[in-house]
């Protein structure tokens, strides 16, 4: 393993032929070659979901979806940035759900498409984090919110599953709803509640 980066790799990014050292990510390679790139760049650590790219590797017809900041360049790779975010099309307020008994009914009001899943698995295929997205949607549809949410711990809300869904389900938002209702209705830590209660009564003041 040679650490010094000397060998240049040739690839095509957004239609531009460029060369960059092999230890570069797609975004770094673009900058290295002198091209501007602002939109579609975010945390550069794989947690913000901004740098979504389509990738076709040399000698393959397959096109995959990945995150540009985490993707190391390869010889002959063809990369395309998908810069525009996809706004959510549903709207809800957690406060409007009166009790946890109503969550499932509300869910289907907010996400009527979720039941229409045709099980094409496109969302799961496209997920750059390897989440079983389709399963999450299925679980949420059945009201198993805690379980559904648990699958999406690593979700960075890149929205790729949303554009991949032919039924216009927004799986990432389905999952986030699942996670949020779980916290909203079921996280009641006694250590926190006790502390709040003491402080409410005026205890535990800080002396500067």
């Amino acid at each position: 393993m040679s650490i010094d980066s000397e060998n240049l790799i040739s690839l095509r990014i957004n239609g531009k032929d460029i060369s960059a050292p092999k230890s570069h990510s797609v975004i770094q390679a673009l900058w290295y070659a002198g091209y501007p790139r602002v939109k579609g760049v975010g945390c550069l650590q794989g947690v913000c979901g901004s740098c979504r790219v389509l990738v076709r590797r040399a000698g393959s017809t397959k096109v995959t979806t990945e995150l540009g900041c985490e993707l190391l360049i390869e010889e002959g790779m063809d990369v395309h940035f998908l810069i525009y975010p996809t706004p959510p099309h549903q709207s809800y307020q957690l406060e409007d759900i009166r009790s946890s008994w109503e969550v499932q009914a509300k869910f289907h009001e907010i996400f009527p498409e979720a039941e229409q899943c045709r099980h094409c698995a496109g969302c799961t295929t496209t997920c750059p984090k390897g989440i079983d997205v389709e399963r999450g949607v299925e679980l949420a549809s059945k009201g198993r919110f805690s379980e559904a949410g648990e699958l999406f711990v690593e979700c960075v809300m890149c929205n790729l599953c949303q554009t991949a869904c032919p039924e216009m389900i927004a799986p990432n938002h389905v999952a986030l709803f699942s996670r949020r209702v779980t916290a909203y209705f079921h996280i009641r830590p006694s250590n926190l509640i006790n502390r709040l209660e003491i402080m409410r009564k005026g205890g535990l003041k800080v002396i500067e």
């Binding site: 995959t64 094409c120 496109g122 991949a164």
Partner: peptide
């Protein structure tokens, strides 16, 4: 019309359209 099985098709045509 894309069936959804291939994200490159569904997302690709979505982006073209956008």
């Amino acid at each position: 019309s894309s069936c959804g099985q291939c994200p490159s098709c569904k997302t690709g045509t979505y982006y073209m359209s956008l």
